[in-house]
Amino acid sequence: MMYGTDGCMWGGWGWSGWILMGAVMVLSSAALITAVVLAVRYLTDSNAQRNRADSASSSKSEDALAQRFARGDIDEDEFRRRLTLLREHQESR
């Protein structure tokens, strides 16, 4: 049988069994909550890095276009037209 000498099931741990069970429940709950928080942070950080990379590439394109305008390679109308096209292309992604 599984009864201890005092008639309790599993040897009768008394208060120490309850304390141990409570500690295990608290620790497992903390581990689960930590795992969920870390997963959410990882997923949102991945999206943020992707968005930063997209905005960095668009600013590089706009900087290159601004430099061409500053050097006089293109006139103001051409600069504005190309800048509008760049921004429309970035919005459609």
Rank of each mutant, 00 (worst) to 15 (best):
H89Q: 14
E91C: 03
I74H: 06
S61G: 07
E76Q: 12
S61D: 03
D75P: 02
M9S: 06
A53I: 03
W18K: 02
R71P: 00
T84A: 05
A39K: 10
D77I: 09
L86F: 10
N51A: 15
M25H: 01
S16C: 09
Y3R: 06
D73E: 15
G12C: 12
T44K: 07
D54V: 07
R82K: 05
G22V: 08
R80Y: 02
L86Q: 07
R41H: 12
V40P: 01
G14E: 04
R87I: 11
A64V: 00
G72C: 13
R41Q: 12
R82Q: 15
M21Y: 02
A70K: 11
I74R: 03
Q90M: 08
G17C: 10
L83M: 11
G14N: 10
I74P: 03
G72R: 05
D73G: 08
T84P: 00
R82M: 11
A48N: 10
G72Q: 11
I33V: 12
S92I: 00
L32N: 09
D75Y: 02
V26L: 15
R50D: 07
A31Y: 08
Y42P: 00
R52L: 15
V24W: 07
L86G: 04
G7L: 01
T5K: 03
G17E: 06
G14F: 05
M21R: 02
Q90F: 12
E62H: 01
Y42E: 02
V37C: 04
D75R: 00
Q49H: 02
Q90G: 08
K60Q: 15
D75M: 04
T34P: 01
Q90K: 14
L65M: 04
L83I: 04
G11W: 03
A31L: 14
R93T: 11
F79V: 07
M2W: 00
R81D: 12
E62I: 14
R68N: 03
D54F: 05
A56K: 08
Y3N: 01
V26I: 15
T5N: 06
D6W: 00
L85D: 14
A39S: 09
L86I: 12
R80F: 07
A48S: 12
E76S: 13
V40N: 06
E88M: 12
A66L: 11
L27Y: 12
W18T: 04
K60M: 13
V37L: 09
S16D: 06
A53H: 04
T5R: 05
E76K: 15
L20F: 10
A64P: 00
L85I: 08
A53M: 10
N51S: 12
G14T: 09
A48K: 08
I19V: 13
G12K: 11
A39V: 06
L32K: 07
F69T: 01
M21G: 10
R52S: 14
L83D: 04
A31Q: 11
A23E: 02
G7W: 03
D45Q: 13
S16N: 07
R82E: 15
V37M: 08
